[in-house]
Design a protein around this nucleic acid. Sequence first.
RNA 1: GGGGAUGUAGCUCAUCUGGCUAGAGCGUUUGACUGGCAGUCAAAAGGUAGUGGGUUCGACUCCCAUCUUCUCCA
Length: 870
Amino acid sequence: MKSQQIRQQFLDFFASKKHQIVASSPMVLKNDPTLMFTNAGMVPFKEYFLGQKTATEKRVADTQKCLRVSGKHNDLEEVGKDTYHHTMFEMLGNWSFGDYFKKEAISWAWELLVDVYKIDKDCLYVTVFEGAEEDGLGYDQEAYNYWKQFIDEDRIINGNKKDNFWEMGAQGPCGPCSEIHVDIRSAEEKAKISGKSLVNNDHPQVVEIWNLVFMEFNRKADGSLEKLPAQHVDTGMGFERLCMVLQNKQSNYDTDVFTPLIREVEAITSNDYGVKEETDIAIRVIADHLRAVAFAIADGQLPSNTGAGYVIRRILRRAIRYGFTFLNIKEPFIYKLVNTLSKQMGEYFPELKAQKQLITNVIKEEENSFLRTLDQGLVLLDGIIKNTKGTEVSGKKAFELFDTYGFPIDLTALILSEKGMTLNEVDFNSELEKQKTRSRAAAVVETDDWVILEDDAEEEFIGYDTLEANVKITRYRKVSSKKEGNFYQLVFNMTPFYPEGGGQVGDKGYIEVSNGNVIYIVDTKKENNLIIHFAENLPKDPTQKLKVVVDEKQRFRTTCNHSATHLLHQALREILGTHVEQKGSAVHSKNLRFDFSHFAKLTTDELREVEDFVNARIDSKIPLKEFRNIPMETALEKGAMALFGEKYGDTVRAIQFGQSVELCGGTHIQNTGDIWHFKITSESAIASGIRRIEAITGDATKDFYFENNKAFFEIKDMLKNPVNPLKAIVDLQEENTTLKKQIEALLKDKAKNLKGDLIQEVEAINGVNFLAKKLDLDQNSIKDLAFEIGNQVDNLFLLAGAESDGKAFLTCYISKNLVEEKKLNAGQVVRELGKLIQGGGGGQPFFATAGGKNPAGIEEALQKGKEYIL
RNA sequence: GGGGAUGUAGCUCAUCUGGCUAGAGCGUUUGACUGGCAGUCAAAAGGUAGUGGGUUCGACUCCCAUCUUCUCCA
């Protein structure tokens, strides 16, 4: 059975059990500070389990794209070495939000595996929670009883808290779970060792395929458990493993999820899979990582040097590294696999198809840049090897190569071992540890427990309609960070403050306390569906009613910029074409930034056209049409662009200005006329195929034009108000260059004369051509002159004095042969004579300068100069 | 967010602890050899050393600020 069918059968099966089938949520998370990527099927539904939101559908099933790069069994550096771990994987899941529980979850799981997928039940084992005394939890007899209706009792295994009690984190919803394991070893091996003893023992062919979590408790901050008001089911089945089982393979990588990619790698790189262990690992790494990176890019996460982008970059670079070293490919090739991936998975994940070109470009660009880094590193490593005495390269050097130049440490180790050298790994690791400690120390934020004043499940956002409100604090906590000191995070029962999101910055403002004092709110952010206000202080009495006020001016400017961003988006699609898609957006009060997919630099004409387009819509004073809490389908009917990034259960808000319809949670002006004016300030590239436009609106454009205009009139004024200022400047420039040339010629002439005069004055003393004179020239000219004369007169000893700004300067030039023959040293001369002008100096033996603050001493110094050759 | 590095001629890079009027290769231009091209030889042009301050007799070099790019960590 093909993997596509396996996925479809799962979804069909649960649809037949009255489940709503929903699309996968994005793998990249945007509004969760605690998590960068969806790392389990339950992540998109977190809010329902936390009780922050009520589910509209009680039964749901889906396949969720997930990414794991760290964790017990998922260290990035381990992926590819075995045959069953991945960075990106699909997790099939069925969910009950306060609906069915253990009985249905267990019997449906069995029905699907045995009756639909036809897995031999003699291959299956299940585990049941054995209980935990410290939590006062007993054996999960209920689950056991349901299982024994289907499976031999000796195939039911007890599991401890670590394996069979699932928790979301240190706090929050949790509950016992029951896992289904499958033994796919050959009959012979099964005869030798019983599968039962291999369950949960990291055996590649005795693996867990499905985990059924029965969520019924809430872990409180003090560690105690309380019963949840409703019971939920959360299941997760690894899709790749399921395919391995159903396709009778011994490795996930031998299923048709991966084989098309592996065949393609073989073809491109002329390496065969299944011949040599290290080649196989490299091919697995590439096939796995390509999926992770491609899906991340499709979700809008480009490789970068911070945060989630950095994780993606690291994954991609690891793949490049393996190709470079073990497949011996020294040029970009991974990008070529995108086509295959998109063909294979684009059917179910249309974002892959839609973004294919972009993914290809971005990967290719990233490959190129990393290959450059590798080249540079190879040269540097060569240098290090040459400068190393003995055979051990210091860990510090290797760390520098890694830390500063991005050269992978395993490559360093490999190259060294090829040359019979070793690497001091202990030192390297200690350097790495130091750097980690440093980074952590800088990022340290101490967060106290929430102090809950009032239980209020949903904090209402009222900021679309008002900028002021009387509110109560429902919970608060103290946070201290090294950089910003102490501050408080407050949650209100309702708030007019817009939390950072959708590219728009969070609101600032203040809290009015009873005695007329104010407490400033410096930022507003969203965390797990809570709107959190960052305040400098806590009101004396946090339980009283408070008046909170949003900074109106800043909000208005931000709002103008946000609405203008929509118009800009429309303009770009209209003028450049529909390949333009938003790739990022930042809306501040000062300006706006919009990143979008487009293949070429915008011409000045295009930029002008875009500006005009937006301004035309501002001029036509289009009123805002706002649709709150409408189902996605309705929004799409209105013409909103379908975005990959919405998840199940979301009702959306649509913002319409004429033809521009967007799904958006941001704040918007009532009428485009309010924006007043729109002006692009820069256009640039941020990645292959991605351009960025920065622009300003409203007041900012007034300032912009005012400043420019002012500068222009100042320039015109300086030029005596010419009719054609541009021509005046060109003329001026031309005049300037001819004058420069003339001056240069004159100076040369003058210098020649001066030089001639001075040469006349040179006296021969003891076979040395001596000259000591005070000159009315600047230091640079004296230097030039000295060298010029030195070129013409042999055996020259020249001492020059000069005065400027009340300071005295001495310059000494001595022909090189004199330096050697007579053991003269200009530096020494200048240092000694420098005392006469109350200063010091130095230089090289044949040319030196000194400076001091006593011009009166110049004459004496010049006199004394002669003594050196007498 | 924290650390490290980086910015010098059109390009790739030198210039050691401050001092050889900032150099090389490639490229460009000109000339010579050749019937022409390729090629060889010769010569020339080309630099506010990212920017702005500071220290110093003297700063590409040291200090401070700021920007660019790269990179590791969180």
